[in-house]
Design a protein around this nucleic acid. Structure first.
Length: 263
DNA sequence: CTTTAACCCTGGAGGC
DNA sequence: TGCCTCCAGGGTTAAA
C-alpha cells in the first residue's frame, strides 16, 4: 500500500502484549503509507511522521480482506484504505501493535529492535561473526540461536532443524563451538531458511496466506521437529525431545553428538 | 554482566 | 457430549 492513505483505523481489542495506543486511529487516519519493511519478525510500516511496529506473536496473522466481509472473532484491528482493507487476527494476543514517533529518532533504535541480531541473509552474517558472538557463552547453542540477539529469524522450529543439519547437539555450550563448526552452522542457518522460503514456509496448523485462503497450507517436512520417537531420516535412530528454556527441542542423539571438552 | 523462570492468552488434541 | 489436562510457532520482564 505504499503511496496510499489510510481512510480509517479501527481498534476493536486493544489488549495485546502491550496495550494498543488509544490514539492510534487519530495518529494514522489520512496518513500515507511510505514503505513496508521487516526487521527480524517485526513488521515496520513507515509514514512521514513515524512508524507502525507490528508483531504477530505465535498466533497472529495480517491479511487483506474484502471491504464488506464481516469481522470474525479475534479480528482485533482494521486498517482501511479507499479500496483495500487489512485485518489483524490474533487469538492468543501475544502480538503487538505499537507506534514509534519520528521525533524519537530512527525506528531501528526502538528498544524492541535495537538489540536484535543480524539478518541471516546479510553478507555481514559470517562464520567469524558467529564465532565471535558465541565466544564465552555458557548458554546452550539452541537457546543462543533462539534468543535472536546474534542472528534473527531462527525460531523454535528452525533452531532444531538447523542444529540437526549441522550435526550439533542442542545442549552444546555455545562458546564451545570451533570456528570450523561455525562455518558449517552459518551456512546451514542460511540454507535451512532458504529452503523454507522456497517451499512457502513451514507454518503448522494456523496458517493462512495473505488473503486468508485456508487452501494455502504448507506441510512442514521437518527432519526432527515434532518427530518424537520417529526414525531419524539419516540413521533411523528414534528422535529425542527435550525442554530448553521452556521450549521443546528435537534432535537425533546419534547424528548430533555432544562435543568433548577441548582443553 | 549473563542466564533462567515466570508470564502473557486462546484453542486444539487427547484422555476419561 | 463434556470436562479435564497438556501443549503450542514468540518474546519480554523480573529474579537469580
Amino acid at each position: 500500500m505504499p503511496g496510499h492513505a489510510l481512510t480509517q483505523v479501527l481498534v476493536h481489542e486493544p489488549r495485546m502484549r502491550w496495550p494498543i495506543p488509544n490514539d492510534l486511529a487519530a495518529t494514522l487516519t489520512g496518513r500515507v503509507v511510505r514503505s513496508c519493511e521487516r526487521r527480524g519478525k517485526y513488521l515496520i510500516i513507515t509514514f512521514d511522521h513515524g512508524a507502525l511496529i507490528i508483531h504477530l506473536g505465535m498466533s497472529g496473522s495480517l491479511r487483506r480482506a474484502p471491504l464488506d466481509e464481516p469481522r470474525r472473532k479475534h479480528d482485533h484491528v482494521e486498517w482501511l484504505f479507499e479500496h483495500a482493507r487489512f485485518l489483524l487476527h490474533d487469538p492468543r494476543r501475544f502480538g503487538a501493535v505499537l507506534w514509534h514517533d519520528a521525533t524519537d529518532g530512527s525506528v531501528l533504535e526502538h528498544p524492541l529492535l535495537a538489540k536484535l541480531g543480524i539478518e541471516p541473509f546479510d553478507p555481514l552474517f559470517t562464520p567469524a561473526y558467529l564465532h565471535d558472538r558465541l565466544r564465552g557463552k555458557t548458554q546452550s547453542i539452541k537457546q543462543a540461536l533462539l534468543a535472536g540477539h546474534i542472528v534473527v529469524g531462527v525460531g523454535n522450529i528452525y533452531a532444531s532443524e538447523v542444529l540437526f543439519r549441522s550435526g550439533i547437539h542442542p545442549q552444546t555450550e555455545a562458546g564451545a563451538l570451533s570456528l570450523n563448526r561455525c562455518v558449517r552452522l552459518c551456512a546451514d542457518i542460511r540454507q535451512t531458511l532458504e529452503d523454507a522460503l522456497t517451499s512457502g514456509g513451514s507454518t503448522l496448523r494456523d496458517y493462512v496466506n495473505a488473503t486468508g485462503e485456508p487452501g494455502a497450507y504448507f506441510e512442514l517436512h521437518a527432519a526432527v521437529y515434532d518427530r518424537l520417537n520417529q526414525p531419524c531420516r539419516i540413521c533411523a535412530t528414534p528422535i529425542k525431545r527435550i525442554i530448553q528454556g521452556q521450549r521443546a527441542t528435537y534432535y537425533c542423539p546419534k547424528c548430533q553428538r555432544k562435543l568433548y571438552p577441548r582443553n
